[in-house]
């Protein structure tokens, strides 16, 4: 079973994402900001990370840069999942090492297709 870490400060979004991911047979972990997510990753690298942009304490971008610098931090696939829906943000995310990008709102089909594209579903 593949593991997915959902990083989002919204409990509702985490719940929705968890539900979809579990139907896609992922084992799901949650973190409410970038720092908590980093702590998770130090413990065990997930196969894929679903990452929000704007979060208190540590934003998605700060988390991603820190992750990609960390030992084996290049391994997880990172899928941004955010309401920042313009090309400038998307380009910046790719440059920082994101593998895919989901613009909110999203549904099961969209998330599934993006997870297939990065090769984890």
């Amino acid at each position: 079973m593949k593991t997915c870490l959902v990083v989002d400060d919204s409990k509702v979004i985490r719940k929705v994402a968890r539900h979809i991911l579990e139907t896609l047979e992922f084992s799901v972990e949650e973190a409410e900001d970038g720092r908590a997510a980093l702590a998770h990753c130090e413990n065990a690298m997930p196969d894929v990370i679903l990452l929000d942009w704007n979060m208190p304490v540590m934003s998605g971008m700060e988390f991603l840069r820190a992750l990609r610098r960390a030992e084996s931090g290049g391994e997880p696939k990172v899928v941004f999942c955010t309401t920042e829906n313009d090309l400038a943000h998307i380009r910046a995310a790719i440059e920082a090492g994101a593998d895919e990008y989901v613009m909110k709102p999203f549904d099961r089909e969209t998330l599934h297709s993006k997870l297939q594209i990065v090769g984890v579903a």
Binding site: N85, L87, I90, R91, I94, A98, E100, Y101, V102, M103, F106, D107, E109, T110, S113, K114, I117
Partner: peptide, 15 residues
């Protein structure tokens, strides 16, 4: 639409 453009299409190709 945003919904259509991200369904099935890798972000690199979208960009």
């Amino acid at each position: 639409s945003q919904f259509e453009v991200q369904r099935g299409l890798p972000v690199m190709q979208m960009v």
